[in-house]
Design a protein around this nucleic acid. Structure first.
Length: 270
DNA sequence: TCAAGATGATCAG
DNA sequence: TGATCCTCTTGAT
């Protein structure tokens, strides 16, 4: 589930599992063999996420940059690590834990400068206390593009993926095809505050829960709404099902190659 | 057994 | 905008 909150947790898990320890680094699948050899035996200094990017820094200043993409996964287990199953691009083994990376879009060694460049291109990350939502709003307010597309643009906002995009727009009762330039400042502030709260909760819970029964008493009486991504949601991947709030059929459409979900009554086009 | 789809992003045209 | 890459799971055949 690679949205920003997942990467934030993974960074914390890496530090907790391997921080301060010299680790064995390998690439059972072979595609990261050269990079793995360069950091094998080095001490893990720190790990951090930025949007959907993950960086693992070693004491000798080498940095592994990982981007999970759509299907990548980083899983952990207790040492000793068993023989690798499937296409394990990267394996990190410590004295207590091991981690396996599969299916990542990016797994490479980068320099501190390159890392700075990557992070510098990213938009405001709702998980960072120093994030600047004003800059994001300037981009949104200048654009004729759909707000649903802008929220997914990692140079505008970083860490927001399809689930948070769909859900935060529902919670704001904003139609995803509304042009960015028609999003008011007040509306944007509410969306940003909501993202900050939802994503922090995503980090705590390890899943995306957006349904607030206490705010929607009617929803309490409806059938279970746990999506198979693991959380409770209003519209994400619920096309053709009833909206928890008004009972209308949730709609879907492809916007810029990604599935979009919204309730046509709760999120009217203005 | 096989095809489709998935919470992402890039590149060519 | 469509093709492509990465891997695994699910559902259809």
């Amino acid at each position: 589930m690679p949205e920003g909150h997942t990467l934030y947790r993974l960074a914390a898990d890496i530090e907790e599992s391997f921080g301060g320890e010299a680790v064995r680094v390998s690439s059972p699948q072979g595609r990261f063999a050269e990079g793995a050899a360069l950091v094998d035996g080095q001490i893990v200094e720190a790990a951090q996420s930025a949007g959907k990017h993950l960086f693992i820094r070693f004491v000798d200043e080498q940095i592994i940059h990982i981007h999970l993409g759509l299907i990548g996964a980083l899983t952990f287990g207790d040492a000793p690590a068993p023989p690798a199953v499937g296409a394990v691009r990267l394996r990190i083994e410590g004295s207590r834990r091991y981690a396996d990376l599969r299916g990542a879009m990016v797994c490479e060694l980068v320099t501190t400068e390159a890392m700075g460049g990557l992070v510098g291109q990213l938009g405001a990350d709702p998980l960072r206390p120093d994030a600047d939502p004003d800059r994001a709003y300037e981009r949104i307010h200048r654009s004729r593009k759909a707000v649903g597309a802008l929220l997914m643009d990692q140079t505008v906002l970083s860490g927001v993926g399809n689930v948070y995009r769909s859900e935060v727009l529902f919670r704001a009762r904003l139609h995803p095809l509304t042009p960015g330039q028609r999003v008011t400042r007040r509306r944007w502030n509410a969306i940003w505050d909501d993202l900050v709260e939802l994503m922090a909760e995503g980090v705590r819970l390890g899943r995306i829960d957006t349904v607030r029964p206490e705010h929607e008493p009617e929803a309490m009486q409806r059938p279970p709404r746990v999506d198979d991504h693991g959380g409770e949601v209003y519209v994400y991947r619920r096309a053709g099902q009833q909206c928890h709030v008004c009972g209308s059929m949730v709609r879907t459409e492809i916007l810029e190659g990604r599935n979009l979900f919204w309730c046509p009554r709760c999120q009217r086009r203005r």
